Simulated scan of single mutants.
Amino acid sequence: MKNYKKIGVVILAAGSSSRLGYPKQLVEFKGKPMLQHIIDVADSFEFETKVLLVGANSEEIKSTIEPKNFEILFNKNWQEGMASSIRAGLERSLEKEKDLEYLLILLSDQPFLSRERIEALIKEQLATNSEATFSEYDGEVGVPAIFSSSVFPYLKELKGDHGAKKLVYDKKIQFRTVKFEKGNFDVDTKEDVELLKKLEKE
């Protein structure tokens, strides 16, 4: 997919993985850390800006992954929660490209993210010109998601551990959805890691 629109991408990887006890960003899936998989998929696109947010365990993460064309940004407020990383990522993206038209937000622990899933989100967003396009899994909407610049002011207002889907309920923004099978699978516990290892062999 050619970069004929100004799209920025932000990967959120600043969390502490407190329930797991070690950085879930570095849990291996199919021979590489999950975060590396997300970087590799996203870097295959010619996005206008590419920003990776780190926070907890930042040195270990930086020494393990290959950022490729991503700028690594340390979120000093990572303990506030996901909203602080979204705000920091958006702010840095706009510093790099003030005329950014869209922002794609990805998480570091969705091992089944693929290039096809991202392409589907972008195509839906550009075709419908809605305020946002979210992934849909198990009847829920969430990230990966892409937001138009009209929503940027709302993203800047997010607080605490609320992700971008909070806008759906608070701001009643107009959005579309794209199905993402296994999109609800993330890694928070040791049981999740064990299940991931089993799924890896399927």
Rank of each mutant, 00 (worst) to 15 (best):
K182Q: 09
Q174E: 15
V143L: 06
E131Y: 12
K166P: 00
S130C: 13
D170A: 10
F152Y: 05
S135V: 03
E136T: 14
N129S: 13
F134V: 07
V143H: 07
F134W: 13
V143E: 09
S130P: 01
I122R: 03
K123A: 10
L121M: 04
K172E: 15
K166M: 12
S135P: 12
N129C: 02
L121K: 04
L167H: 12
I173R: 14
K123Q: 13
V141G: 08
R176Y: 02
S135D: 11
A145I: 03
G183V: 09
K159D: 04
V151H: 03
K165P: 01
K156S: 14
S148R: 13
P153H: 08
L121S: 04
T128H: 07
S130I: 02
A127V: 00
S148K: 11
D161E: 12
I146H: 07
V141H: 11
K171A: 14
I146K: 05
Q174M: 10
A164L: 01
L155D: 03
E140L: 14
K166V: 12
L126R: 02
D170Q: 10
E157T: 10
L126G: 00
E157Y: 02
K172S: 14
P144A: 05
V143T: 11
E136G: 06
K172V: 11
G139S: 05
K156L: 15
E140R: 13
E124F: 00
K182I: 00
H162I: 01
S150M: 10
Y137R: 04
D161W: 13
G142C: 04
H162W: 12
L158W: 09
Y169M: 04
E140Y: 14
T128S: 12
T133H: 09
I122P: 00
V168F: 09
S130K: 15
K171V: 12
E157P: 00
F180A: 05
Y137T: 10
I122H: 02
D170S: 15
K166N: 08
G142P: 02
G183Q: 09
K156C: 03
E131T: 06
Y137G: 01
P144V: 01
T177S: 13
L167Q: 13
K156E: 10
V151I: 11
K171R: 15
K159M: 08
S148F: 06
V168P: 01
A145G: 12
K159I: 08
K123I: 08
V168T: 11
S130V: 09
L121H: 11
D161R: 14
R176E: 13
V178I: 10
